[in-house]
Simulated assay, not measured.
Amino acid sequence: MIQRIQSIWLLLATIALILMMFLPLVSKENKTTETEIHTVGLYKDVVGKPGPGLLMEQFTPLLITNIVVAVLCFINIFNFKRRTMQKRIAVFSIIAIGGFAFWCSIFAQKLPGGIDGARFDFGAYLPAVSILFCIMAIIGINKDEKLIRSAERLR
């Protein structure tokens, strides 16, 4: 149900995780090439040449994990009738996003020459943003439970 605030927070967490598939996590620029890490894989691009970069290595398990965590947050929107279950899934999503972010940092070390001198792009901060949105959803679920308990006391 969209009128509940936790649904909006979970939708925003899903959107942040989906954006991770399209935005670079880490990039490193040499004199002639620029290398970027996405959740899809490692891209190499010649500096000054227009067009998309060349996919050098594909990170299929990382991409699948990204999709699974995004789908988990999205499906949790429809558990609004079972608030306890929705809260548990949101906590599990936070743990899964934290593990996914750690796994992304391990894949970021696959940059040629390591992460020394690398630039963290916007995609690297999206797991923290989605964790924040999940925490806000849990706060909304708690407020919803408190409101329902107070309404039951009045009966």
Rank of each mutant, 00 (worst) to 15 (best):
A101D: 03
M56C: 01
I148N: 05
R88C: 06
I64L: 15
I15M: 10
P112S: 06
L17V: 04
A137K: 13
N30P: 01
T32P: 00
N66H: 09
G113F: 00
A96W: 04
E36D: 09
K110L: 14
I148L: 15
F107V: 03
P112C: 09
L72Q: 03
I131E: 01
S93W: 03
L111R: 02
L25S: 06
S27I: 03
L55S: 06
K87V: 07
Q86S: 14
K143T: 07
S150W: 11
Q58W: 11
D144M: 11
I77S: 03
L55H: 11
A96V: 05
K143P: 03
I131Q: 03
L11A: 12
R153Q: 10
I138W: 07
I5K: 14
T33R: 13
L132S: 09
M1Q: 06
F59H: 10
L23F: 15
I2Y: 05
I135H: 02
I94T: 03
E145N: 14
L25Q: 09
M56T: 09
D144L: 13
A151D: 10
L111V: 06
N66M: 11
M136R: 12
G98Q: 06
G114T: 02
T33P: 02
F92T: 07
G41N: 11
A101N: 08
F22T: 11
M136V: 04
I97K: 01
G99M: 15
R4V: 09
S93C: 09
I67S: 00
F78V: 12
L62I: 11
V46S: 04
I8Q: 03
E145A: 08
Q86C: 09
I141V: 14
I75N: 00
I115E: 00
N66P: 05
I148Y: 05
S150A: 13
F100G: 00
R149P: 01
F122D: 03
I115K: 00
F133D: 00
L63R: 14
V47R: 15
L42W: 05
L23V: 15
V69C: 05
S105P: 00
K110I: 02
I2T: 07
Y43L: 14
G99D: 07
V129P: 01
F80N: 05
N30W: 09
T39H: 08
